[in-house]
C-alpha cells in the first residue's frame, strides 16, 4: 500500500526536473564556453567590460531609488489607511490593490501613454516614475498589513507615559512595523532589479538595465554569457533574501519585548 507521505513523490520528481535541474543548467552554462569546455571567461568578460559593470551598478541604483521612493510615498499611505480615525472606509485599501491585478505590460504601456499625453519625454525620469507607479502597491500592502495588526495599546501606553506624537511614532510604531517594511522592500527591490520589459518600454530602449542585458544576450544566442549574468543576479537576490530573513528574525525577537 502506498503511504500518504509518498504522495509527495510525483511533485518531488517534477521539481527536481523543472526547478532544480534548470537552476543547475544556469550554473553549468555560466562556467562553460560554447563547446562545453570549463571556463571562467564569461565572468572575466563581465568584470572587465566597463559598460557591463556600469549597467549593473546603474540597475542597482535605479532599484534602490525606486525602493526608497516607494517607501517614502507608501509608508504614510499605509499608516493613514491603517488608522481608523483617518480612514474609515475599507474600500480605499482595495483601490490600491486593484492595479496589481492588471497585467504589468498593460500598466506600463498605460504609463507611457500618460507621458505621451502630457508631453513628458521618455527617459530616466519616466523610468523612475513608471517603476514607482508599478511597484507602489507592493510596498503599501505589506506595511498596511503589519500596521493593521499592531496592538494600539502600545501607542496608548506611550501616550500615557508622556511621549510626544513624534516619539510615539519613532519609538513604538516604526519598530513594530519593521517586518512590514522588510517585506515591502523585498517585494519592490527584487522585481525591480530583475525587470526588463518595463525599462525598455518606458525609455524607448534608451536606458538599459541589467535584466535587459541578460535577455538580449539570451535572445542573441549568447547563452553562456547570459547564464553567467543570470547567475550574478541570482547571487544578489539570494543575498538580499538571506539578509532580509535575518533582519526579520531579529525583528521578531525584538517584537516579543
Amino acid at each position: 500500500m502506498v503511504k500518504r507521505s509518498q504522495w509527495a513523490a510525483p511533485y518531488l520528481v517534477f521539481m527536481i526536473l523543472f526547478v532544480v535541474l534548470p537552476l543547475l543548467m544556469i550554473l553549468l552554462y555560466s562556467f562553460t564556453d560554447k563547446d562545453g569546455a570549463v571556463t571562467f571567461a564569461n565572468f572575466v568578460n563581465f568584470f572587465s567590460q566597463k559598460e557591463a559593470i556600469h549597467t549593473f551598478l546603474y540597475s542597482i541604483e535605479i532599484a534602490v531609488i525606486n525602493t526608497l521612493l516607494c517607501l517614502l510615498l507608501g509608508y504614510p499611505a499605509a499608516y493613514i489607511l491603517s488608522r481608523r480615525d483617518l480612514n474609515r472606509s475599507a474600500v480605499t485599501i482595495i483601490l490600491f490593490i486593484i492595479p496589481m491585478w492588471v497585467n504589468v505590460l498593460v500598466r506600463t504601456l498605460a504609463t507611457v501613454a500618460l507621458f505621451d499625453f502630457v508631453h513628458i519625454p521618455l527617459g530616466e525620469g519616466a523610468l523612475i516614475f513608471g517603476m514607482v507607479y508599478n511597484f507602489l502597491p507592493f510596498m503599501i500592502y505589506p506595511i498596511y498589513n503589519t500596521l493593521n495588526k499592531m496592538d494600539n495599546s502600545y501607542v496608548e501606553a506611550a501616550q500615557d507615559l508622556g511621549a510626544t506624537p513624534f516619539q510615539q511614532f519613532k519609538n513604538v510604531v516604526l519598530p513594530l512595523s519593521m517586518p512590514g517594511i522588510t517585506n515591502g522592500i523585498l517585494m519592490v527591490f527584487m522585481p525591480t532589479i530583475s525587470t526588463f520589459a518595463i525599462s525598455e518600454l518606458l525609455t524607448m530602449n534608451k536606458v538599459k538595465l541589467f535584466g535587459t542585458t541578460i535577455q538580449e544576450n539570451i535572445n542573441n544566442g549568447m547563452w553562456n554569457y547570459g547564464a553567467a549574468l543570470a547567475l550574478i543576479m541570482l547571487v544578489i537576490i539570494g543575498v538580499t533574501t538571506l539578509f532580509s530573513y535575518n533582519g526579520k528574525n531579529n525583528e521578531d525577537e525584538g517584537g516579543l519585548l
Binding site: 523543472f18 534548470p22 537552476l23 543548467m25 544556469i26 553549468l28 552554462y29 527584487m190 522585481p191 532589479i193 530583475s194 525587470t195 526588463f196 535584466g211 541578460i214 535577455q215 539570451i218 547563452w223 547570459g226 547564464a227 543570470a230 543576479m233 541570482l234 537576490i237
Partner: peptide, 11 residues
C-alpha cells in the same frame, strides 16, 4: 524572479 525561472527553463 521570473526572468531567472524563464532563463533556467529555457536552458
Amino acid at each position: 524572479p521570473d526572468i531567472i525561472t524563464g532563463i533556467s527553463l529555457f536552458l
